[in-house]
Structure formats: structure tokens, C-alpha cells
Amino acid sequence: MTKILKRIYAGLILLFLYAPMFTLIVLSFNASKSRAKWGGFTLNWYHKLFHDRAMMQVVLTTLMIALISSVVACIIGTVAALAMDKMNAITRNTLMGVTNIPMLNADIVTGISLMLLFLFFRFKFGFTTILLSHITFNIPYVILSVMPRIKKMNPSNYEAALDLGATPIYAFFKVVLPDIWPGVLSGFLMAFTMSLDDFIITHFTKGAGVDTLSTKIYAQVKKGISPEMYALSTLIFISVLVLLILINTLPSGNKKDEKVVKKA
């Protein structure tokens, strides 16, 4: 009896959590433009979506920012994590403290602080400012997911490579990088999803005319949502699902790190 009650409770919470997803998916196939009525099955919105140049441009911008920002964050973050491992405790903890700021601070504060920076130094708001902001909030995710891998690494391997005549660069690519690769990869995927998902920071750092998906949705919500958006969100949901299955099946340094999630 209690077992059934427990299942029902867990099921109800799941229903609550997934109801919006199902709604979006169902609406994406709804022939009627009304959100409240079912007008029959159609693939029309998907067809329209792929022929909507402006929308495709938004998708492209979003993907470009996510891809470039997570690659750059991976390079800077991995290199920084390697260096931090060799630092003394005080320097390392200070740097870790700074690294935690974008993760712990409210996104709205991070967003306006970057906006003020760009205003003060007269940056032109647009693709570049969004990109710089995304790199900034992505680096911590990379560092936090690479760090445990580096801690587990055997330093003798690297030293042995050097003793055997490898240059530090060669030893890094042949010995260190393969060792920490899963951490880098899960950091990359995390950074990528964080970037795709971000609205608040993008909202404050974007310029007129440049939109990512999130800011586009926000603008549409005010004016009325086109059903193409439902089609797009269904496609996103499926992509996110695939991405996450990838993250979770990849061997990672520490199962706990995979839960490095924080997004509001």
C-alpha cells in the first residue's frame, strides 16, 4: 500500500515536471493556431520553421555562440585547471573563489555587471559581447569538471614522459590530455548546454538585431508566440535529450561531478 502511494507521489511530481514538455510537443503538431483547441495533426509548423530565414539565423547564432564559447572555455579552463593544480593552497583557493563567483551570483547581477563593463569600455553590443559573456560563465563549469580528473592523474606519467625526452607540449598532448579527456569533454557538453539555455546574461549583453533563441522566445512571448516556436522547442527537447544521454553514458572522472548543474 505505502509502496503504491510512494509511486503515485513520484509519478505526480514527474507529471508536474514533464507537463510543459508534453504540451509543447503536442502543440507543435496542432493544426489549429489556437493554444487551447486541437485542430488535427500537422507537420506544417516544422515545414514553416525550416523555411523561416530569420528563425534559422537565430538558431545559427545560438549554436555558434554555444560552440565557440564552450571551445574557448575548454581551452582556457583546462589550461587554468592544470596550472591551478600546481599552485600553493592560498593562490589556488583564491582563484577557485573567483571561479565560483559567476556560479553562485545571481544571473541578473552577472548580466548587469558585464553590461556595465561593455558600456564603460564602449564595446559595440552584439555577437562579440554575448560571446565574451558566455565564455565567462562557461569557464567555471570546465574547471570544475576537469579538476577532479587532474587530481586523480598520476603525476609520474608526465614526469616519465619528460625523462624519456618528450617536450612539455608533446607530453601534454600524448600523456596528460588523454588522461583528463573525459573531464574536458563533460565540461564541454555542460558549457554547451549552459550556453544554449542562457537567457538572463544574454538579455543584458546582446545588442539590437542579434538574438539567441532565448531572447527570441522572450520577445515572442510579449507579442504572441508563433507555433513554429513549438516545433523548434520540440526539436530542442529531443536534441537536449540526446546530448544528455551522451553526457551520462560517457565515462567521467567522478559521478558526482556530472551533477555540476546550476541554472535558473
Binding site: M21, L24, T193, D197, F199, L213, S214, S233, V240
Partner: peptide
């Protein structure tokens, strides 16, 4: 569900 776009 947390990974699904917040706005969506």
C-alpha cells in the same frame, strides 16, 4: 527538465 530552455 532542468536542461530544457527555461523560457520554453
Amino acid at each position: 527538465p532542468m536542461w530544457m530552455n527555461f523560457l520554453l
